[in-house]
């Protein structure tokens, strides 16, 4: 479970990107973080992956305080989190298969097992046929799905995505969000940052609304109209 307790983040030389933010996400829950550009959505996700550290307050993940994790412990934490980025961040000089395989190599999974899991993940996002191709030969939506396969292949307990549909047309965006909902249904905690309100409403999941770094609304799934 994710727990933010009075978390503030001030970037060097900047104003407060997050301000006394407190909320929790239960294990297996799916939540959207929304708000205008600059509201602090990306910052929130970066704090979870220890890409940034909070200026004040504390964050814990599955009962473990992130403040106690030193530089050496960061890789281990990140292996528990699957991250999806708006620009997918695939390695363009490696095949789809090799990209999805990376987290398993890093995690020390045996080679035979890796092949099985990569194919299962690619099948899940509907791209098994493309495993030998380079990402550049794929469409934007397909590239994003490879990014998602890479994020889930090592079976993370937490999946976080920053504007995963930002570059996609509405039809594809719905498809991608559907994928996240599927991962939630099988027990993964999912946190998605997005400013696409119509899409978020369609998903009928919990919505955390930020404005200038402050939490201004926390709407339960049942209350989403």
């Amino acid at each position: 479970m994710i727990r933010f307790d009075q978390v503030s983040k001030r970037y060097e030389g900047g104003h407060e990107a997050l301000s006394q933010l407190s909320f929790q996400v239960a294990p297996g829950e799916m939540a959207f973080v929304t708000g205008h550009s600059g509201a602090g959505k990306s910052t929130l996700l970066k704090l979870l992956g220890l890409i940034e550290r909070p200026s004040h307050g504390s964050i814990s993940l599955d009962g473990q305080s992130l403040a106690k994790i030193g530089r050496g412990g960061i890789p281990k934490l990140r292996r528990r989190i699957g991250m999806v980025f708006q620009d997918h961040r695939l390695l363009m000089d490696r095949t789809v298969f090799a990209n999805v395989e990376l987290p398993l190599v890093i995690g020390g999974v045996a080679p035979a097992e890796r092949g099985r899991r990569v194919r299962a993940a690619l099948e899940k996002v509907g791209l098994l046929a493309y495993e030998r191709q380079l990402p550049a030969t794929l469409s934007t939506g397909e590239q994003q799905r490879v990014g998602i396969a890479r994020a889930i292949v090592a079976k993370p307990t937490l999946l976080i995505a920053d504007e995963p549909t930002g570059n996609l047309d509405p039809q594809l965006a719905v498809e991608i969000m559907g994928l996240f909902a599927e991962f939630q249904q099988v027990g993964t905690t999912v946190l998605v940052a997005s400013h696409d309100l119509p899409l978020i409403k369609r998903m009928r999941k919990r919505v955390v609304v930020l404005d200038h770094g402050r939490l201004v609304a926390d709407i339960a799934a049942e209350e989403v109209l």
Binding site: A110, R117, A120, A121, I152, K155, T157, V186, G187
Partner: peptide
């Protein structure tokens, strides 16, 4: 497709330090 995410997580963390060092 559930098994890919829903498999028990214990299975994932079976330690194989030497083998994984060699694989790396």
């Amino acid at each position: 497709e559930a098994p890919i995410v829903a498999e028990p997580r214990v299975e994932r963390s079976r330690p194989r330090p030497v083998a994984s060092w060699r694989d790396h």
